[in-house]
Design a protein around this nucleic acid. Structure first.
Length: 570
RNA sequence: GCACCCGUAGUGAAAUGGAUAUCACAACAGUCUUCGGAACUGUCGUUGGGGGUUCGAAUCCCUCCGGGUGCACCA
């Protein structure tokens, strides 16, 4: 529709003998100002040496000579804006279209044929999965889905720090407190114990120099896999924590295609660094470094191989980037999602790689999000000052469960619904804002169920479903052709869904979808509150039912893009 | 010190250079409703300071103030 209006205006400008110019056709913020507006008269007025308002009036008259059916009327407003009001036909046809598309509504083809890999979540085995990982997971999953909805073929990747000091700390904890290493038959419980062992080891490492020595020793042994006892502990711990993560992914709705291990990437990276020593990398103080500032003054030198001969994080990241392109041949884009503290050295790594493989330079994109923090300060799994994803989910679920007391469900149904609604609460509170900024974590707010929340969206959806059930019982069938004269606010919003998906995909910003859905849900609830939808006596009831159907499709599809499963009842 | 990110009602946020800056929470006042009150209808209140570009700036540029993150062998 937007393109159509643009074309009409271009034709009119030609007829009026005005040169082409760069004007915009957009939605006004306030629905009172129409469904679309254009600033063409303000832009072209200068060139044509006419007052914008006069020119706008002229353009309106010209368009009116041949007014399309989908535009009801136009209006001159403010300093020279032209507002377009869409017609009843337009809205009804749109509802019909949504009914035809069903849950595919909102799809576009801008990325058809493109192969994209998205790496996100990246929890470390032997360490707790905390709410920071929850944040990266929610953002990554949503971006992956939005890209898929735009036609891309998306591969999901997860990168595990399976080796290093953090592992040694956890193993140290397990040897000091063998009760934590007991086989419990539940990897969830075992992973929780390993998390405690990690905190024990991490604390000892900071405070006790003897322990520090011991942990460093364990670290070396694990690298070499030289100690049978430690190997057994390692294999068991790796398995338990990875399986516990997998349980969480299932609840969160993520299925990874690839798992990359740091220990493997280290070798791949090291090889590349050594091959390019003297060309890209140089030696300094016995270490192999990359002087990025030689290529870009905003970057800085970083160590890739330490003076001890060990590959650093940078080298592993380099290996990972290469391995991704090897795993998915002909990949068009490789996206990595992390917290923003990694922004600077990722730039350095990317620069180094683009010197070695210039063909990848424009195919890598690092998306960084803000930190999840407490009012008390930064959260770190190092000190044990963490909320695990698992415990948070459990607390929220508990509250949902309480709210469902009055509803008539079996415990099994309740469990499923409470889980999905709890996930909606968490994901919504993460995805509702632009991903650059920090989120101050507030437990009370993250579990609030009214107004600006995931459960509110789920509730609107469940409620609409229940209306549809009643319509079925009363035999009121949906019919988009019996609409009343004027259009409701829901209709004026519902046709915009595809544009929102497009915008989200272009900017890698899921929050556009959250904002849109909350507005749509509000409009629907208002429609619901002020109208009786199912009424066999009412001629337009069939239209209202059709509109309700359209709403459920858009809401379900939208929630799906956020990585939220919407229960039909709750 | 240098680089990057950020600063919008009491709080959390939105706004691809456009109109009277939007939404929610909180607070206050209503709606006791046949389809689900996790709701609906109102009221209240905001662009860190100063310059500049523009017909038009929360948005772009400069500067100051405030917060965060990162800057050589941790990840």
């Amino acid at each position: 529709m937007q393109e159509k209006i643009e074309r009409i205006i271009k034709d009119v400008l030609k007829n009026l003998g005005i040169a082409e110019c760069d004007f915009a056709v957009e939605h006004p913020e306030d629905l009172k100002n129409g469904d679309y507006f254009t600033n063409v008269a303000l832009v072209a007025g200068k060139e044509a040496k006419m007052k914008p308002q006069e020119l706008a009036q002229k353009i309106i008259l010209e368009i009116e000579k041949n007014l399309p059916q989908k535009i009801a009327r136009m209006e001159l407003a403010g300093p020279g804006f032209i507002n377009f009001y869409l017609s009843r036909e337009f809205f009804s046809e749109n509802v019909e279209e949504i009914l035809n598309d069903g849950e595919d509504t909102g799809k576009n083809a801008t990325l058809t044929g493109k192969k994209i890999m998205v790496e996100y979540t990246d929890p470390n085995p032997f360490k707790p999965f905390h709410i920071g990982h929850l944040m990266t997971n929610a953002i990554g999953e949503s971006i992956a889905r939005v890209l898929e909805h735009s036609g891309a073929q998306v591969a999901r990747a997860n990168y595990q720090g399976d080796i290093g000091l953090h592992v040694a700390k956890a193993i140290y904890g397990l040897t000091k407190d063998p009760t934590l290493a007991e086989k419990l038959g539940s990897h969830k419980a075992e992973a929780a114990n390993i998390g405690s062992a990690y905190v024990l080891g991490a604390t000892a490492y900071e405070k006790d120099s003897e322990a520090k020595k011991e942990i460093d020793e364990i670290n070396k042994k694990i690298y070499k896999r030289s100690d049978e006892k430690l190997n057994t502990l390692y294999d068991w711990g790796f398995d338990a924590t990875m399986k516990a993560f997998e349980d969480l992914y299932e609840i969160l709705g993520t299925e990874f295609d690839y798992y990359f291990l740091e220990s493997v990437m280290a070798g791949i990276g090291e090889e590349i660094v050594l091959e390019n020593k003297g060309k890209v990398f140089t030696e300094s103080d016995n270490a192999v470094v990359f002087r990025a500032e030689d290529y870009d003054p905003k970057l800085h030198t970083r160590v890739f191989i330490t003076s001890q001969g060990l590959p650093t994080y940078e080298t592993k990241e380099l290996g990972l980037a290469l391995e991704k392109f090897k795993t998915e041949p002909n990949m068009d884009l490789s996206i990595t999602i992390t917290a923003n503290e990694q922004a600077d050295y990722m730039r350095v790594v990317t620069k180094a790689l683009s010197l070695i493989h210039p063909e990848y330079e424009n195919k890598m994109r690092h998306i960084t999000h803000g930190m999840m923090r407490f009012a008390s300060g930064k959260m770190g799994s190092r000190t044990g000052n963490v909320i695990t994803g698992e415990s948070l989910l459990r607390d929220v679920k508990e509250l949902v469960w309480q709210k469902m007391q009055a509803r008539d469900f079996t415990d099994k149904e309740k469990e499923k619904i409470a889980t999905d609604v709890a996930v909606s609460a968490l994901k919504y509170s993460i995805l509702k804002q632009s991903i650059g900024g920090d989120i101050v974590y507030d437990f009370e707010k993250s579990i609030s169920f009214d107004g600006d929340s995931g459960p509110y969206l789920c509730y609107s959806y469940a409620r609409a479903n229940s209306v549809l059930e009643k319509a079925k019982k009363e035999n009121v069938l949906p019919d988009p052709h019996v609409a009343p004269e004027s259009a409701w606010e829901v209709e004026k919003l519902i046709y915009r869904f595809p544009e929102i998906v497009l915008r989200s995909a272009g900017a890698y910003e899921p929050h556009h979808i959250t904002s849109y859905l909350i507005e749509l849900a509000r409009a629907f609830n208002s429609f619901y509150g002020n109208n009786v939808i199912v009424n066999p006596e009412d001629k337009s009831s069939s239209y209202k039912v059709a509109l309700t159907f359209a709403f459920t499709f858009v809401m379900k599809s939208g929630l799906n893009l956020l990585g939220i499963r919407a229960p039909a009842k709750m």
